[in-house]
Design a protein around this nucleic acid. Structure first.
Lengths: 249, 249
DNA sequence: AATAGAGGTTCAAATAATGAACCGCAAGCG
DNA sequence: CGCTTGCGGTTCATTATTTGAACCTCTATT
């Protein structure tokens, strides 16, 4: 593995924490030598990707990504173009809606509109969505070329709840249904008690770039309800693609 | 220079462009071998920091920083905490106001509130502000320990306009004035026709972490006006620090 | 006073980065 | 058309960087 890959993997480890971390702990966590970890951190800090607390000497994610993100979003305002649609969908269905984008081999949440109801599903911005175990992931995979989707199902699939579908062929069946229907449904496969429906955001070249999903407490969404939500989600997803890519396509 | 540093520098080069760029061009621009450039790009792409256009084969900044930025901002909501103060200041003075943060050895704009007037100064989000030639940079330097400020003035200072102060000692005089007054003023030093006033955002440990600045067309801001703006900017900057760091300090 | 573990550093050994030369392809041109 | 130019991308012997066990120093705990 290249040095760059190792350094970026280290940065990823750092992101998964929601608190600062010491050198030794981080070295253990990322399975790198302490000296190597330190060299990487120093280098990453020079560029602002990592920040060291002056007092505790612990490390955390730096501010540089904020700058890069602004530059990226000035050119590709995916989240800001989508935001009003996400909000409208959240208002319409009364449940938590989240938008994810595929980048760096992972589908990650980039925008969340919380349900206004007291009993609601909480989704963290920045969280990674497993492709086989979330409605967003299924929606994304279902619209990817078969070969590429297969690659995501090649490794053993991780279980997240008792209901997680971890058999690759069973997932393929779900993908076929999703492709036919235009949206995916995931019943408690990621978190017990949560049901989701999601639809992909598809670029003009036919590739999905992300997904729009609604997550509801299972008590509030029977089969008919979730199908209705799915339809609305699919409509909102294509509205986002239309707006973002211009009316063409 | 380490491989990581080279790769991140390459990423920086990529950021400075506002359009996609081909492999050969980018290699020339970043003074790396073509093969090396490609290896770096492939590695960066794996992690989503770089994106290659499937049709043109050109490269651009990827979406991964957006995810990292969200994670960072969930923990340190500097921009979102500051936003209302920036807006209030913009409304009060009727000019463009921008907020910058220091990270990775550069002061970069992270939020802008445009003036509502037709004739206004445009500031790009994500842009890097030279420390010696902008009001923001002077405000930042003035509140940094002398030794560190000195380091920023050690190299030859770049000229951006006929009025740019490029003599280190002259800059030091400006810094002393700024420290005494609590805000900096920059008269056309960065862009001809633009006058700015800025104040640092200072952390509880005494270190400046960024700056708040107002930029106005010089025709609209005489000496008295700019001093008034400076006072308001300094007040807003300390209000931001107070809010962001809690009432302590 | 002794111990454990933290952050950080060193230098010979091991490994990964490097870049000149190469390929195949497409566009521009006489 | 055939030739040239420059593109994106690849190869592999050479070279320079990365690596990590052992080390140091400092602080907190016992």
């Amino acid at each position: 593995m290249s040095t760059i890959g190792k350094a970026l993997a280290l940065l990823d480890s750092l992101c998964e924490l929601d608190r600062d971390i010491g050198l030794s702990d981080l070295a253990r966590l990322s399975a790198l030598d302490k000296a190597t970890t330190r060299r990487f951190l120093v280098e990453l800090e020079k560029y602002g990707f990592v920040e060291q607390d002056g007092e505790t000497r612990k490390y955390r994610l730096g501010a540089a990504p904020v700058r890069l993100a602004r530059i990226r979003q000035a050119r590709f305002p995916f989240a800001s173009v989508a935001a009003p649609f996400v909000k409208a969908l959240a208002d319409a269905v009364g449940e938590t809606v989240h938008l994810s984008e595929f980048a760096g081999g992972r589908l990650a949440t980039i925008h969340v509109e919380d349900s206004t109801q007291a009993h609601r599903v909480i989704v963290d911005v920045g969280a990674t969505l497993p492709l086989h175990a979330t409605a967003s992931g299924l929606a994304f995979l279902a619209f990817l070329p078969k070969a590429e989707a297969g690659r995501a199902l090649a490794r053993p699939l991780q279980r997240f709840s008792p209901e997680t579908v971890i058999d690759a062929d069973a997932v393929r069946t779900l993908l076929a249904e999703t492709a036919a229907r235009g949206f995916s449904v995931n019943r408690q496969g990621f978190e017990t008690g949560v049901i989701s429906a999601a639809a992909p955001i598809v670029a003009p070249n036919g590739r999905p770039v992300g997904a729009l999903a609604v997550a509801a407490p299972i008590a509030r969404a029977d089969s008919a309800k979730i199908l209705d939500i799915g339809e609305r989600t699919a409509a909102a997803a294509s509205a986002i693609a239309e707006k973002y890519y211009g009316t063409k396509r």
